[in-house]
């Protein structure tokens, strides 16, 4: 088993919450993990990514080799495209459609969506809207995780367990809304490709 995942977004969007849940499951399953994060300057509103590598065999490189990523999970549409050179020919691009505009030359929405549709295997998901609809606007990252869950090769119940463990400290209500977000994301992805 091997999964190379690029998590993408803008500094401050909290992509590492996705990594934390996956990390919990990976350790629980006794798999190997390497997770390269971005700390430092880019966290001030610049582009950030994390390379998450999961394998049943020991992993050498902390960085995913070009053209080998199985998945790009992005919480921002333009950022999802920045890592295209890393995506394998059979890989999936799963992105939120909610733009984060903090630059003056941000592309038009149509142009952006056109590029995303050019990727054969893609899921574009209005994660922010879905999170709002289920009454949990701050769980859009977990909606993204739900949308990607079918492609992780990790048991879904374990992701649920991970959410319970990681958000448990914050109270039952937060756990509930994140579980709801996970399910909503998964359901959306199912209907998207159906």
């Amino acid at each position: 088993m091997k999964r190379d995942i690029i998590l993408a977004g803008v500094g401050g969007q909290g992509i590492l919450s996705i990594a934390t849940v996956i990390g919990f499951v990976v350790v629980d399953q006794g798999l190997y993990l390497k997770q390269a994060e971005v700390h430092g300057m880019s966290q001030r509103g610049g582009d950030v990514q994390s390379n998450l590598r999961i394998s049943s065999d020991p992993i050498y490189s902390d960085l995913i080799p070009a053209g080998q990523a199985d998945l790009i999970i992005s919480v921002e549409p333009m950022e999802s495209l920045r890592y295209i050179p890393f995506l394998s020919r059979t890989g999936w691009l799963i992105t939120s459609t909610a733009p984060y505009v903090n630059i003056t030359d941000y592309p038009e929405n149509d142009v952006l969506m056109n590029e995303i549709r050019k990727v054969k295997n893609h899921i574009a998901i209005p994660a922010d809207t879905i999170a709002k609809e289920i009454g949990s606007p701050r769980s859009s990252n977990i909606v993204m995780l739900g949308a990607a869950s079918a492609y992780l090769d990790l048991p879904f119940e374990k992701l649920e367990e991970g959410i319970q463990k990681i958000f448990g400290k914050k109270g039952e209500k937060i756990v509930e809304s994140n579980l709801k977000a996970l399910h909503a994301g998964r359901d959306f992805a199912k209907s998207y490709i159906a």
Partner: peptide, 17 residues
């Protein structure tokens, strides 16, 4: 060289601020 497709032109630089 295993690199995938190029970064599409629509992707702009996003420096920290």
């Amino acid at each position: 060289d295993n690199t995938g497709n190029d970064v599409p032109e629509v992707v702009k630089l996003r420096p920290p601020a």
